[in-house]
């Protein structure tokens, strides 16, 4: 084959083999390996950050839910605390009122009793006074002195009568 376009030249063939293999080795070491590693790393970084963003989103959702839950709980608790304290306040107010009522009732009762006792005492005193007065009056009317024995007898009997009257009444 002697066509100028298809000349077989072993020299160029060997040159090409050697030089291409050299180019291959140099590029493999200094270009393709680092570049492929770099691309892989960058792709990993991108997918990692995407996944991170996704998980952060989910976390945010979760936190939001939790905070809402906590807020609701706090609201409920506050409500119950308020109603509890209201109840308590009402209760204590009622108690104080009742106590005061009872005390005042007691006072009234006491006073009534005292009044009763005083009344009885006063009535007794009045009766004695009345008796004395009536005796004075009677002795003045009779113009004579009844013996002390008789007097006393009379007084006692009339007192007894009075007492029985009183007891009856």
């Amino acid at each position: 084959m002697n066509n100028p376009l298809f000349v077989v030249s072993p020299g160029l063939y060997i040159w090409s083999l050697v030089i291409f293999l050299l180019v291959l080795l140099i590029l493999k070491k200094y270009a393709w390996k680092p570049l492929l590693d770099f691309l892989d790393q960058r792709e990993k970084e991108i997918s990692d950050s995407l996944a991170m963003a996704e998980s952060a989103k989910a976390d945010l959702e979760k936190v939001k839910e939790e905070s809402e839950k906590i807020l609701n709980e706090a609201k409920n608790q506050g409500k119950s605390i308020v109603s509890d304290s209201k109840q308590k306040a009402e209760d204590s107010a009622n108690k104080i009122l009742n106590d005061a009522q009872a005390k005042s009732d007691e006072f009234v009762l006491d006073a009534k009793k005292k009044i009763d006792v005083e009344k009885k005492k006063a009535i007794k005193e009045i009766k004695e006074e009345v008796v004395g007065l009536s005796l004075d009056l009677a002795s003045q009317v009779l113009q004579r002195n009844v013996k002390d024995e008789d007097n006393n007898k009379f007084v006692d009997s009339s007192l007894k009568a009075m007492n029985t009257d009183e007891a009856k009444s």
């Binding site: 040159w15 090409s16 050299l22 140099i26 590029l27 200094y30 270009a31 680092p34």
Partner: peptide, 19 residues
Amino acid sequence: LLLVSFITVTSIIFLVQKY
């Protein structure tokens, strides 16, 4: 062939390493 090899090696290594 030498010229092509030289251009290929230098330009690609330069660009890749710079990047």
